[in-house]
């Protein structure tokens, strides 16, 4: 009986993973754009990017999710999954922008100076010298954000997306075993988060730049 129950809730896992796999990369691309605009854009663009980043981070994710969900599904015909995932992507983009901005600034002005000194244009310098180093610096806080997105995917439950939490709720109603139902959900999330963290740790280790201590 438990296995039936478990597999029922487990089926939501795929949706949860899918939501995360849509939101996270979308947020990365958008966040990178915002970060680059903040650092290298002109006075107007960098201001706009900064306002976007600060504004989006000053509002609870669930509120943003609701606003974006209604806006997205109001303007284009998207189902709850896509509207919710994209909305989540937009939410995380502001946090990722902040992370990337910090990483790029940590690379240090000297690297840009050295790149310009051999005749590289700003664009090439950012592409070949700054970003590759920034990526390594960004991995630990970014891993943290990845976990957060995975956990925040539970918020799309409120939009009616059939992910883990929503399956757990249905299981709870069907079996009258709420503790078991939500406990199972918690367990599955825990495994997902744990796995993601370990994988990203491994990636961080693989990507490190060799040095002698």
């Amino acid at each position: 009986m438990f296995s039936q129950f478990f597999s029922y809730v487990l089926q939501g896992t795929l949706t949860t993973v899918e939501v995360t796999l849509v939101a996270l990369p979308f947020g990365l691309v958008l966040g990178l754009l915002v970060a680059l605009l903040q650092i290298y854009g002109g006075p107007i663009l960098s201001r706009i990017a900064a306002i976007y980043s600060t504004g989006m981070r000053g509002v609870p994710p669930i509120v943003l999710l609701f606003i974006l969900f209604f806006v997205i599904s109001g303007s284009i015909s998207l189902d709850a999954f896509w509207a919710g995932s994209l909305a989540l992507g937009i939410v995380t983009s502001a946090y990722q922008a902040e992370i990337l901005r910090g990483a790029i600034l940590s690379v240090g002005a000297g690297q840009m100076v050295a790149a310009r000194a051999i005749g590289m244009s700003r664009l090439k310098a950012v592409q070949h010298i700054i970003l590759p180093q920034a990526v390594r610096l960004a991995i630990p806080p970014w891993s943290n954000e990845a976990s957060i997105v995975l956990k925040d995917s539970s918020l799309v439950y409120a939009l009616g997306v059939p992910e883990i939490l929503s399956r757990a709720q249905q299981a709870s109603a069907a079996t009258q075993q709420p503790f078991l139902a939500y406990g199972t959900a918690a367990l599955i999330y825990f495994v997902l988060v744990f796995t993601t963290n370990r994988l990203l740790d491994l990636l961080s280790h693989r990507m490190r730049i060799p040095s002698n201590p």
């Binding site: 976990s147 956990k151 925040d152 939490l165 709720q169 078991l180 918690a186 999330y189 825990f190």
Partner: peptide
């Protein structure tokens, strides 16, 4: 590990809906 590794929403539901059982 438990409370950072699971969503707040799930923790909330566990406490409010789950514990009564």
């Amino acid at each position: 590990e438990l409370f950072r590794g699971t969503p707040l929403l799930v923790q909330l539901f566990l406490i409010y809906y789950g514990l009564p059982s």
